[in-house]
């Protein structure tokens, strides 16, 4: 589903080069629920940005669902992102001026679906996160947990193959966090691949597999929890 090999990301200024990722390799199979952990500044977010096609990388290769994303232009990446990836952000990133229905509608608009199709998908997605009754509400009228549920509904509405979650419970209290986590597990159970960046060990423990990143490199992975649907051999994280 997601395969990065010897991936490298360098930020260059005229004085110094900073490696955000160096020789980063990871392989996430279809249906997996992977948690990427690591301390602040380790390169987790850079990994997520590159995985989600929000940023380009400077070396190595990245196959997303079999598509080599290297060399895609900005529009191509936007389209791929729209079709294959759903995002869940730490700060929810709901658009405050739009009600829930319109918020979930945003990616569907870019997908170019017709009105009826969009409506069906929005209702279904909001139904899945249990917020069907609040479609006309605005984000500011919801609790943090509810807002994150809307964000999840927005991520699901386009039926992505891959869900990228960035500290999905980082802004939530533990009760709400548990609810969101259960929802993610349920979604994964229905077949969607999830890659979650977090530094919460409790959260990470609930994933099938943990990938630990330090200084832009994968340092180890948790072999104990084996993925349910994985048929290939163990994903590789090589060290240079």
């Amino acid at each position: 589903m997601l395969k990065m090999t010897h991936l490298q990301k360098v930020y260059r200024t005229h004085l110094i080069e900073t490696y955000a990722l160096r020789d980063f390799s990871i392989n996430v199979a279809e249906g997996e629920f992977v948690a990427v952990t690591g301390p602040s500044g380790s390169g987790k977010t850079t990994f997520l940005n590159i995985a989600g096609l929000l940023e380009e990388f400077t070396g190595g290769s990245y196959l997303l669902d079999g598509v080599d994303v290297h060399g895609l232009d900005d529009n191509g990446r936007s389209r791929l992102r729209n079709e294959k990836i759903g995002f869940i952000f730490q700060g929810f990133n709901l658009i405050p001026d739009l009600n829930l229905f319109d918020n979930v509608d945003v990616p569907l608009r870019y997908r170019g679906y017709g009105a009826a199709e969009r409506k069906r998908r929005i209702e279904e997605a909001l139904g899945r996160v249990g917020l069907s009754s609040r479609m006309k509400h605005y984000p500011s009228e919801l609790s943090g947990g509810q807002q994150q549920r809307v964000a999840i509904a927005r991520a699901l509405a386009g039926s992505p193959r891959l869900l990228l979650a960035d500290e999905p419970t980082g802004n939530l209290d533990s009760l709400m966090a548990r609810g969101v986590m259960e929802l993610l597990e349920e979604i994964n159970g229905q077949g969607t691949t999830i890659v979650m960046v977090t530094h919460d060990p409790e959260l990470a423990a609930r994933a099938h597999r943990n990938v630990h990143v330090i200084d832009g490199q994968v340092t180890d992975f948790d072999a104990e929890s084996s993925p349910r649907h994985v048929d290939a051999g163990a994903p590789v994280a090589a060290i240079s």
């Binding site: 989600g52 929000l54 900005d74 529009n75 936007s78 389209r79 992102r81 729209n82 079709e83 995002f87 952000f89 700060g91 990133n93 658009i95 405050p96 945003v106 990616p107 870019y110 997908r111 927005r154 386009g158």
Partner: peptide, 15 residues
């Protein structure tokens, strides 16, 4: 931030 989110959700520059 909202623009970034839209971009992340698949909006092109043209959008």
């Amino acid at each position: 931030r909202q623009i970034g989110t839209r971009r992340a959700l698949g909006a092109t520059r043209g959008d």
